[in-house]
Design a protein around this nucleic acid. Sequence first.
DNA 1: GCTATATGCTTGACTAATCAACGATTCTAC
DNA 2: GTAGAATCGTTGATTAGTCAAGCATATAGC
Lengths: 139, 139
Amino acid sequence: MKTSKISLLIQQTHIGTLVSKRLDVSLSVHGINFTEYTIMHHLHATRDNKLSRIGLAEKVGLTASGVTRVLLPMEKNHLVSRESNPRDARQSLVVMTDAGRELFQNAQVTAEYSTEEILSLLDQDELSLLVKLLNKLKC
Amino acid sequence: MKTSKISLLIQQTHIGTLVSKRLDVSLSVHGINFTEYTIMHHLHATRDNKLSRIGLAEKVGLTASGVTRVLLPMEKNHLVSRESNPRDARQSLVVMTDAGRELFQNAQVTAEYSTEEILSLLDQDELSLLVKLLNKLKC
DNA sequence: GCTATATGCTTGACTAATCAACGATTCTAC
DNA sequence: GTAGAATCGTTGATTAGTCAAGCATATAGC
């Protein structure tokens, strides 16, 4: 109880980097890293599998230019494609392709497996509790 | 409850990057970033304020070469210095200097302030619960 | 003691992501 | 409707960190 609150944030970020590295390794068999997986995860969770680049940036915690650079190889590999918004010519929407969806579904199996390992020591109640607590952080 | 466990890990890493960026900004007034702060935090918490570079790497979640590169400017600014281990000539120990301790103590005030903001929505019970849950992750 | 293997650390080459500046478009308020 | 401010996205330059290779030392087994 005497450990400062900063230790909690240090631990939080530490675990974040470990989780990310671990999933990078697992997902590499599909030719993607965890950032790319996360992008597809958010696209998949969206109606029409579409998001603006800025919207994507906010969801994944990257800058706009970071998103541009992550998407570059994904477009080249036809995992996502580009669509313009008729309502706003500044926006270009990111759309998951069929190939992207297929790769994502395979990658999801892999990611789920690693996730189970990482979370294996938590039961269902603890999981939802953890989600609740993380949601309370003011970032 | 229907959200997959992967979402939890995605959220976890997302928060990690946000926290890290936020503390980077706060700490910049002291001329250090969050990684450097974390290194000093671990040195400070150690008997004699000394750690091997490998030991440090494990604690902060960097590779050995990552540690080498973070410490380079810190050595130049005399925040840490280098000491050899008489028992093992391969090791070089990282020691916090007096100047380092002083800067760290100032930075700690700043970091604590930001931490309070970030954790403001959690009460004491929730904080210790969160620590407990994070400790249960198998990374 | 000597060889083989493992560990600690640094370096060159690379990758992921940032920031600042910019062009293009849209929104606001007069 | 037009000027000014805000938003979306890309680009060049930079930074933080990785990986693979290597040198130096240490450890283990013969």
